[in-house]
């Protein structure tokens, strides 16, 4: 793992940068070069909505090595209030408290550490909205 891989995603992971298609208005996260709804390629950068809801979820009990210390943890498909979809861990929640339709807010958190180099990647985790 080299630093460039984490660094090049910094705008979406650190600044919540999404892309709105100027052709059809759809908001994509992460930003894309081609809109899969209208095949347009003209986008403007927008800030991703920070609140949304859980569409479906699971509790990961058999994790990959980078997440071994965290299991069990929740991951979810989220639909943000601007219509963008994303996948994120849901933090600060017990497995038995997870619900489909649950309201969540994005927070900037440490996501993982990469291999022997120990590079720390940050990004979004969702937390329940009280």
């Amino acid at each position: 793992m080299i630093t460039a891989r984490v660094w090049r995603e910094r705008r979406q992971r650190y600044l919540n940068e999404a892309a709105r298609c100027k052709g059809c208005g759809r908001i994509h996260f992460p930003p894309r070069q081609v809109c899969d709804a209208c095949r347009g390629s003209d986008f403007e950068a927008v800030r991703l909505a920070e609140t949304g809801k859980v569409l479906s979820w699971s509790i990961i009990r058999v994790p990959p090595p980078a997440f071994a210390q965290e299991a069990p943890y929740a991951v979810a498909v989220l639909e943000m209030d601007d219509g963008a979809r994303m996948m994120a861990q849901v933090a600060d929640v017990a497995p038995e408290e997870m619900r489909t339709g649950m309201r969540v807010r994005l927070e900037f958190r440490k996501i993982r550490q990469y291999g022997r180099t120990g590079i720390i990647a940050y990004g979004h985790k969702a937390v329940p909205v009280a």
Binding site: W57, I60, P64, A66, Y73, V75, M87, A121, K125
Partner: peptide, 24 residues
């Protein structure tokens, strides 16, 4: 890899999300 596996989703985990949506 950059947006599913990155946040700790596993292959069974992704299928589990389909299963939950289907069951509900």
């Amino acid at each position: 890899q950059e947006y599913e596996a990155f946040c700790g989703a596993t292959f069974p985990g992704l299928s589990a999300m389909i299963a939950r949506a289907y069951m509900e």
